[in-house]
Design a protein around this nucleic acid. Structure first.
Length: 431
RNA sequence: UCCGGCGUAGCUCAAUGGCAGAGCGGGUGACUGUUAAUCACUAGGUUGUAGGUUCGAGUCCUACCGCCGGAGCCA
C-alpha cells in the first residue's frame, strides 16, 4: 500500500511508492507517454505515465484528463535533473475523481478584468498561490511580533456608530432602523484597550468608501493596529521599525521560494534593517525642493511626493511632525512646536507608498474636547472616548499597518488587488 | 468627481473606409522524454449599445455603458 504524501515532501520518499491527491495543472503528451503536471496545493510535480507500465484503462484515463481535473496518482518517486523540484513520479496507477469542464484560464496570457471575474479559479495559478502564501506569512509574523512582546489581542468592532475622521468615506448600513457605519480603523477602541491592558493590538478588516481607482487602493483592506500606554512618539517609531523589520525577515526566512516565483529582487529586501531613516516634515520638504518638486509648505504629501522622498533611501523612511492642520483631531501636538502634530508615517521603498500611519494621542481632556469642537464632531458620540482622558489618562501612542500594501511591497508586485484573496474596489464586488 | 486610454471568436490580439483573421484553449488524429511540447485537420463571430456620415463602417462622428490607468483622499 502506497503512502499518501504532500508533493512538497517528495524528497524524503525517493525510490518509494507514494500516492498524491490533487489536480491537473497541465498536460503534455508524446506518443506512448503522458506528462501530467499535478499540483496538490503544496507544490507541483510532473507525473509520467508510460503506456507499457500501466493498464490500458489507466492510460486512457491519463489521456482523457483535462486541465484542473481532480485525480489521485500512485507511483514511484524518482530523482530527475530535468525537474524543477528535482523529482518526478513514475505512475503505476491513476484514479480520476472528476473530469473538469473546459477550464477558462489557459496557459496564454489574460486580461485583468477576465482574471478578476475568475478570481476563485485564478487563485490556483502559481503567482497567485505565492502571493497568498506571502500574505499568510506577513500576517503570521505580524501577530508573532506582538504576541512575543505580551501585547493582548483585543479586536475592535466592525459596526460603529460614528466616524473617527469625517463621514464622506464611510460605508453606511442599516442597523435595525438606525444608521451604522463600517469601521475605518480600530484605533479609538484600541485606546480603550491600552488603558485596560497596557499594550494591545487589533487586527481586522477596515472599510473606506473612497472613490480611489489606483493600484494602491481597496475599499476593504486589513490593518493591524497596536496601541501602547505610557508610550510617546519616539517609542512608537522604534516599535514600528522593529515590527516592519521582523515581518520582512520572516518572509525572507520562510517564503523564499515564493519570492523567487514572483521574481522579486531579494537583495533589496535583505537591506531592510532597523533603525530606519527619520525625517522631520521640514526635512522632507527640503528633499522635495531639492528635487525640484513644486510643493506648498504646510500641505500633506501626495503620492508622487511620497515616491520622491522614499526613492532617496534603500529602506523604509519615517516622516514625523506633520503640520497639525492636515492631521486627525486625536493627535497630540508637540508642546515645543505646537504647529506640528506628534504624527508619523512610514513610506515603503520603491514607490509603494505609505504602509504605516501613527501618532501619539492627545491625552489631555480639555484639549481633546476643544479639538472635537474644532473639527465639528458630535460631542455626545465621543463621550466614551473623552472618558479615557477623565479616568487615569496617560501618554499613549500607536499606529496602523496596512497588510495589503505591505504584501505588495515585499512581493514586488505592481497592483495591490492581487495581495488579497477577493479584492473589493470601487468597481469590483464579484466574486 | 476630474483627466487619459481601451471595448473584434471562450481568451490574447490583428485587419489603409473595401472578402472579419491568427495564436492559445476546445474537438479529431500522429508521435517513447515533453517543459506554455510539436505537427495535421476541424468547429467557433449580432466587431460593447443606440444613432449618424458614406456607394460601402470593426475602422470616421455623437451619446451612453463597461473596464483599465492616473489625480485628489488615504493604509
Amino acid at each position: 500500500m502506497a503512502i499518501e504524501i504532500k508533493i512538497q515532501d517528495v524528497a524524503r520518499y525517493e525510490g518509494q511508492e507514494v500516492t498524491l491527491k490533487g489536480w491537473l495543472y497541465n498536460k503534455r503528451s508524446s506518443g506512448k507517454l503522458r506528462f501530467l503536471l499535478v499540483r496538490d496545493g503544496s507544490a507541483t510535480i510532473q507525473c509520467v505515465v508510460f503506456k507499457g507500465a500501466v493498464s490500458e484503462e489507466v492510460f486512457e484515463n491519463a489521456t482523457a484528463l483535462t486541465q484542473e481535473s481532480s485525480l489521485t496518482v500512485t507511483g514511484t518517486v524518482a530523482k530527475d535533473d530535468r525537474s524543477k523540484i528535482g523529482y518526478e513520479i513514475q505512475v503505476s496507477d491513476l484514479t480520476v475523481v472528476q473530469i473538469a469542464h473546459e477550464y477558462p484560464i489557459t496557459k496564454k496570457e489574460h486580461g485583468v478584468d477576465f482574471l478578476m471575474d475568475h478570481r476563485h479559479l485564478w487563485l490556483r495559478s502559481s503567482k497567485q498561490h505565492a502571493l497568498i502564501r506571502i500574505r499568510h506569512e506577513v500576517i503570521r509574523a505580524a501577530r508573532e511580533f506582538f504576541d512575543m512582546r505580551d501585547f493582548t489581542l483585543m479586536d475592535a468592532p466592525i459596526f460603529t456608530p460614528n466616524a473617527a475622521e469625517g463621514t464622506s468615506t464611510l460605508f453606511e448600513t442599516d442597523y435595525f432602523e438606525r444608521k451604522a457605519y463600517l469601521t475605518q480603523s480600530g484605533q479609538l477602541y484600541g485606546e480603550a484597550g491600552a488603558m485596560a491592558f497596557g499594550n494591545i493590538y487589533c487586527f481586522g478588516p477596515t472599510f473606506r468608501a473612497e472613490k480611489s481607482k489606483t493600484r494602491r487602493h481597496l475599499t476593504e483592506f486589513w490593518m493591524i493596529e497596536p496601541e501602547m500606554a505610557y508610550c510617546d512618539l519616539e517609542q512608537d517609531m522604534v516599535v514600528a521599525e522593529e515590527f516592519v523589520t521582523h515581518i520582512v525577515k520572516s518572509v525572507l526566512k520562510n517564503r523564499r521560494p515564493e519570492l523567487e516565483t514572483l521574481e522579486r529582487d531579494i537583495s533589496k529586501l535583505e537591506k531592510i534593517e532597523a533603525p530606519f531613516p527619520r525625517l522631520h516634515y521640514d526635512e522632507a520638504v527640503e528633499i522635495l525642493k531639492k528635487n525640484g518638486v513644486d510643493f506648498e509648505y504646510g500641505d500633506d504629501f501626495g503620492a508622487t511626493d511620497e515616491t520622491t522622498i522614499s526613492q532617496q533611501f534603500d529602506r523604509p523612511v519615517i516622516v514625523h511632525h506633520y503640520p497639525a492642520e492636515v492631521k486627525a483631531f486625536y493627535m497630540k501636538r508637540d508642546p515645543e512646536t505646537p504647529q506640528f502634530a506628534l504624527a508619523m508615517d512610514m513610506l515603503a521603498p520603491e514607490g509603494y507608498g505609505e504602509i504605516i500611519g501613527g501618532s501619539q494621542r492627545e491625552d489631555d481632556y480639555d484639549v481633546l474636547l476643544q479639538r472635537v469642537k474644532e473639527y465639528n464632531l458630535p460631542e455626545e458620540a465621543f463621550a466614551w472616548y473623552l472618558d479615557l482622558r477623565k479616568y487615569g489618562s496617560v501618554p499613549h501612542a500607536g499606529f496602523g499597518l496596512g497588510i495589503e500594501r505591505t504584501v505588495a511591497w515585499i512581493s514586488g508586485i505592481r497592483h495591490i488587488r492581487e495581495t488579497i484573496p477577493f479584492p473589493r474596489t470601487m468597481t469590483r464586488l464579484y466574486p
